[in-house]
């Protein structure tokens, strides 16, 4: 595995908020094109870590490079190379499907001509042609999430960060959503995903589990189950998270 190309490297990353240590000495690597699951209970420090990796927040100490760019000094380069979709729904509800696509593609520097072509492709793929002129707020949640994901990768980023992308979505749509993720990964996009659904953890190539600001385990779902003598990722997670001492 280690001979594979790494795209995210994190070394001794620490983030403190006054006395509270949100991320305590994180070390991991993410390989190009893999689906990397980032698990942890609420408050374990996942969001803080993602914010640092996306260039939204500065680490207290340690190193991290995203797509070869440094999180301290090359934030703008990082932002150009990543896509992001948050747990909070983040498209503009008062804009139509096409207008959202155009806006986000536009601010990533795509030309109007490319945007038109890409819009047609996206609409066809998502079977949203009839809803192209509908406002986002008039779309069902599942469709919105699928569209949000497509828009997060509209500018063909190297990495896409998904922060609990399937919250509140029905199982069928979740399944479709994961098909989208597989497709993106097959095209070489690295997927960094956090989730609360343990069945989704099984879909990941590798999974890290955070407990109390530390990475308690990191391996393929298969190996993790073997190590912790568990039948499912659910069991693995509970065994690890049970020892958590919330030091808030």
């Amino acid at each position: 595995m280690s001979e594979r190309e790494t795209i995210i490297t994190v070394n001794h990353l620490v983030k403190k908020f006054s006395s509270f240590i949100a991320n305590n000495d994180l070390n991991f690597e993410v390989y190009k094109g893999e689906i990397f699951g980032f698990l942890g209970a609420n408050g374990a420090g996942k969001t803080t870590a993602i914010k640092i990796l996306c260039g939204l927040s500065k680490p207290t100490s340690g190193e991290a490079t995203i797509a070869g760019f440094d999180v301290y000094t090359q934030k703008d380069d990082i932002k150009n190379s990543i896509g992001y979709m948050s747990q909070k729904f983040s498209l503009y509800e008062d804009l139509t499907v096409t207008e959202n696509i155009r806006f986000f593609a536009g601010i990533y520097g795509m030309t109007r001509k490319d945007i038109k072509i890409k819009t047609q492709q996206l609409l066809a793929k998502l079977e949203l042609e009839d809803s192209a002129k509908k406002l986002i707020k008039d779309l069902p949640l599942g469709w919105r999430q699928k569209l949000a994901f497509s828009i997060a990768i509209v500018h063909s980023p190297k990495i896409v960060f998904l922060d609990e992308p399937t919250g509140g979505v029905d199982p069928i749509t979740r399944r479709q959503f994961w098909n989208q993720i597989y497709e993106a990964a097959a095209e070489g996009v690295t997927v960094f995903v956090t989730t609360h659904y343990m069945d989704e953890a099984e879909y990941c190539d590798r999974v890290s589990i955070m407990v109390d600001g530390r990475i308690a385990a990191l391996d393929t779902p298969q190996k993790l189950k073997e190590t912790f003598e568990a039948d499912s990722m659910n069991e693995v997670f509970i065994k690890l998270a049970r020892n958590a001492t919330y030091n808030e």
Binding site: G55, I82, S86, S90, Y92, G109
Partner: peptide, 13 residues
């Protein structure tokens, strides 16, 4: 309020 600012912040805007 809508949370869209978060999405804007991760773009190169």
């Amino acid at each position: 309020e809508m949370g869209t600012i978060e999405q804007i912040n991760v773009t190169p805007i």
